[in-house]
Every structure is written in C-alpha cells, then in structure tokens.
Design a protein around this nucleic acid. Sequence first.
DNA 1: ATAGATTCCCAAAACGTTTTGGAAAGTCAA
DNA 2: TTGACTTTCCAAAACGTTTTGGGAATCTAT
Lengths: 338, 338
Amino acid sequence: MLPVSSLKHLAQSLGLSITTVSRALDGYADVAPTTRERVRAAAQAIHYQPNSAARSLRRRKVEAVAVTLPTEPGQFSPPTFLNMLAACSQRLAEESLDLMLLPTAGRAEEMETYRRLLDGRRADAVIVVRTRLDDERVALLRERGIPFVTHGRTARPNEHAFIDGDGEAGFRDAARHLASLGHRRIAHIAAPQDLTFAYLRREGWLAALAEAGFSDRPEYIAQPTEAGGYEAARWLMQHDNPPTALLCATDSMAIGALSALKEMGLKAGRDIALIGHDNLPSAAFTDPPLSTMEIAAPDVGRQLAEMLIARLGGRDSRELQTILPVRQVPRTTHGPAN
Amino acid sequence: MLPVSSLKHLAQSLGLSITTVSRALDGYADVAPTTRERVRAAAQAIHYQPNSAARSLRRRKVEAVAVTLPTEPGQFSPPTFLNMLAACSQRLAEESLDLMLLPTAGRAEEMETYRRLLDGRRADAVIVVRTRLDDERVALLRERGIPFVTHGRTARPNEHAFIDGDGEAGFRDAARHLASLGHRRIAHIAAPQDLTFAYLRREGWLAALAEAGFSDRPEYIAQPTEAGGYEAARWLMQHDNPPTALLCATDSMAIGALSALKEMGLKAGRDIALIGHDNLPSAAFTDPPLSTMEIAAPDVGRQLAEMLIARLGGRDSRELQTILPVRQVPRTTHGPAN
DNA sequence: ATAGATTCCCAAAACGTTTTGGAAAGTCAA
DNA sequence: TTGACTTTCCAAAACGTTTTGGGAATCTAT
C-alpha cells in the first residue's frame, strides 16, 4: 500500500513547501488567505488526511483513550456498558480522540495490560470501569500521572476524577420505601464487596435498616448475574421466617431471583417484593415488570467523555467528581407486606 | 511528559548503537547472544516499550483494527455483541493488535467515519458488523483494498471474508419443528429486511412454510428490540384466526412479544408457541423460560479475530468464509398446537 | 601468510508530520 | 532612500523507530 496522499505530494503539486501546506491546513495566520483556500481545495480533492502515526510521533500525543474491558461480570450489565461506551466514544470523536478497547481476562493480566499501555504510550488517557474499593489500576495511573477518569468510586475518591451513580442513596431510599410499605425483613442480594458499587449499595441498604431499627438483616453475596441472583434468592428463601422483600444489587440478579421465586410458587409483587437496579431494557418486559432504579441522567457516557476531555485539558481532578442521583422506577414486583 | 525510555537512552547507557539495541530486542541473529541478553535485561529494567507511533510510522502499519459501533439496534443484542468483541479483542491482543471502537449514529455518518479511518491510516484492518444485504461499507473497503472481515453476510458473500451463523437453516428447522407439532399458522416477527441476518431468517421461515404447503404466512416487521417484539405480537394477535406460533428474529423481540402475550392472557408454551434467536443470558430466566436457538460455536469472536489475522497475513478472502451451524435451544415457550 | 567467510556491530536514511527560526518581498513613515 | 514593520513563505530539525548497506575484527582454509 503506497501512501496515497501526503503533505509532500500536496506541496509538490501546488508548488509550495510542506511547511506552508501544513500550516495552511491548520489554519495558521501566516499563510495568505488565497493560498490557504487553494491548499484546502487540493487537500479536499485528494481526500487528504494526515497520517496519524506521523502526527502522533511529532505531537507527542496519540489522540486515543483506552478503556479496559472486563470480561468478568461486573458493575455493568453489558447493555448498559455498551451504550455508555458508545455515547462516550461519540463525544470523544468530536475531539478526534479514538477509543481503544483492551480486553482483560483476570486481574493480573489487567495490570500487565495497563503497564504495556502506559509504557508504549498508546493512549493519552484512560477510562477505568468496574472500580474496586482498593484499586491497583487507579494507583498505577496516579503514579504515572496519566489523565484518567473512573466510572465508579474507590475508597479514596478525593484522589481522582470519577463519575458515579448514588447507589447508596438509591438503595437507602428503596429500603426505606419497602419499610414504609410494612416490610420488616428486607433482604439484600449483594454483589462481591470489593466492587465499589456493590459495597455502596449494601451500605445504603444497611443504613435504612439501621434507621428503621431492624436487626434482622438477611443477605447473600453472589455474582452479579442472573445465575447469581437465582442462587441467592433460593438460599434466602429456604429459611424459616424468610424475608418479605429482596433488594437486588443489579437487574440481572433480580431477573434471576424472579425466576427462582416463580419456581417456588411465589409471585413477586404479591407474595414478595423485589427491586433491582439498572433499569435494563428487558426489565420492563419481565413478568411482572420489574421494579428497579436507574441513574437519573441520560448521558453518563457523554459526561464521562466530557470529564476526560477536561482532564486532558489540565483541569484539576478534584473539580471533576460527579455523583449522579438515582431515580426509583417502580413497577409491579413490589407492594405492601402481607 | 518526557520520554521515560527510548532506544537512544538504552543505547547510551549500554555503550551500544541504537541499531544494535533495536535488533537485539527484535531477536536478530546478527547480535551476539551475550549482548542480546545484556540489552534485554536493561530494557526489562526500565520497562522499555517501543513508542507505538514511531514504530507505526516506520513500519507503515499501525497494529490496530477498527470496528464501528452501530448505535441503532441491530443484529446483536448488546450482550452478545460485547462478548464477541471481548473475545475478538483478546485474540487480537495476542498478535499485539489493538481494537478501536468507532461509534456512529447514522448511516451517512458511518461512511464518513470509514473514510476518515481509511484516509488517515488509523487501522490496518476493519471489522464490519450489522451487515446489510447491500452494504456500502463493504464496497468502500473492497475499493480501498483494506483487509476486512464482516460479521454477517451481504448479498454478494463470495466477494469478501465473513463469519455468520446459519440463520436460514435455524429458522427453517424451527418452523419445521413447529409444523411437526401441529402448528398451521406460524407467524414471523421479522427485523428490517435490509439487514442480512433478518433477511436470511425470514427466508428460512418462508422455506419451511413453502415446504409444508402453508399459504397463510402472517408476518410483521419491527425494530429488533423488546418494544418492537411487543408491537409485533400485539398486531399479529389482534386478527381473527390469529397465529398459533410466533417465530421471532431475536430474543429481545421474543421477550417483548412474551410480555404482550401475557397482557392478552395467553400463556406461551400452552396457548401459543414462541421461539427466539440468540439465547441471551436472560432468556433462560423469562417466564416461562424462552425457547430459542444459538450459534453452535462458543467462540465466534475468536474465530473472527483469527480470520482477520489470516487476512492481514495475505490469505485469500475466499478461503475465509465461515457459516456456523445454529443449534436449537428448546425450553418451555413452545409446545404442540391446540 | 592470505583470500575468503563469518561474526558482530554501526552510521545514516527513511517514515510523514509539526515547529522553529528565519528570509525575501512588500508596505509605510520620515 | 532608508529603516522598521508586515506579510508570506520555506529549509531544516525533530519526534523514535526500523532497515539498509556496509565496516572492522576474527576465524578458516589454503
């Protein structure tokens, strides 16, 4: 593949120097308006696009942002994640920043990926998803001084830029609501507690229970998947004096729990209350439609991109910390206690 | 950010030339084993990673593969898509190929994105997803001679490398099976017919109906989403003499249809048969669990990557055309006709 | 001892862009 | 006419790597 077009070609065919062509295209003031137009027209004609490698080398930045793709189940149900990524990427593209996706199987491999990424200068900035309370990735990025934004907080949120939903408030509100409906044994189906979102949601649940003075705090920790939710619901319901409400860390878990309840002959919304989090597309179509909650912002991905751009522009990370409110989406899987 | 490490630094600190250091690290035979080791040790010590921009510039390839991310609903339900992408990316990483994600809102924008991508040499190869029967993207890529693999066929599949499930056979088999269960009015809930997968699945359904000699061919075309499936089921069932079976282009549509049927007081599996395609994680947890089908290969993403790598290695595209069998996943939303 | 191989290394060019530090020509004021 | 500014352009360096085309030792065979 020969280079179809380069500044050299353009310069030669226009009888100008490479410098002038380059500066004309970049809109510098020191090239005459008429030549600038001439150059632009010629560039357009041959579909000139600067070679990205050459530009990166000279400019010392690659115009790319990386996000590692956790293959383990996690904070995001894939639909949510992909939508967020799409929105984020779209905003980044407006700044001509590419988004690269780095898959990682395990935690060790993830760190190795980060190191290669940073040492090889393949990205100018990084997005960290599926944050853990104690997150090595965040530590590494801080150490290297690479701009980054996390989706989800860590145990030390004041030390970096982040965007996150207020899962704690969301779960507190939901548990309070259940209590006000007469529920006295409100169980929590939790996700692994090293994941920040899972920890915070459990904290919210705990806070509401403490507030209400309930000492019975049934809970079960499982993988944030349908299967995990299924397993948890089975376990929680098999005790005598089982809970009357199940507050699930994610909708995926709630969907699994729903199917377990059904197998046990329990109808959610009538025999037992069930609430999830995420408002997945399919949540409106379960039977009965799932009560859930969601981040009350339509454009988390875009905001994330915005913060990253600000960070690349040198804004201080402490000005870039967003906690988005969580809105309850009541449907029919919850009702008063019997 | 100063360059932490470069061949120059290494060379100076080792008292060698840049050339020798470079060749030592690349394992050339013309550097003495002892110096090679010395260099390797030093490189390891400072975490040397070649600057990717410089390397790309010189080598005239960027070690990156691009995939555009369709934001409209399409061939993939997001979970499937993300998993495929993760597997693909993982295999690509083994060849140190990065995967870039380019979001695109509409079709026009998609073509613009492709052009910028190709003119700016930002990727060595491209993955095309959500193929249409007549796909401009494929035409452009062919014209430019860029290696690419499509996920899904086009109207002229012999002209490019692709991987695809045999949706036609899958839907033929499913419709046959329904016919053998006594169903006589088997409706199809289709996705827009410019999408290849949607076209082929409908063809399979049609073939089985023709085979069985059914002249009644109720169908409705909708968006491949839960809402689309809901709308389609409502429309199809409101006629007198409604179908006794619904064959849905995707599981998302089937889930929407399931909820519509429920609202109409129909129980899938008893009053009406319902079959989807994709075997989404949540399909096993619907009520009743959804009968569906899936591509009978655990690693489509990996195979896709493999084909792309072969294509980058110069393999002919005609040797790289894979149609994967589709396996029926019967659950409980279908049964004999009443 | 000497021609020819072999081994190990290196200087310099090249990739295509951006940026630095002017140079040439034109304009203006005196 | 001259000096100071402006305007418009450009040569050359730089970014960090890979690759070309040898060069200097050392070894081998006569």
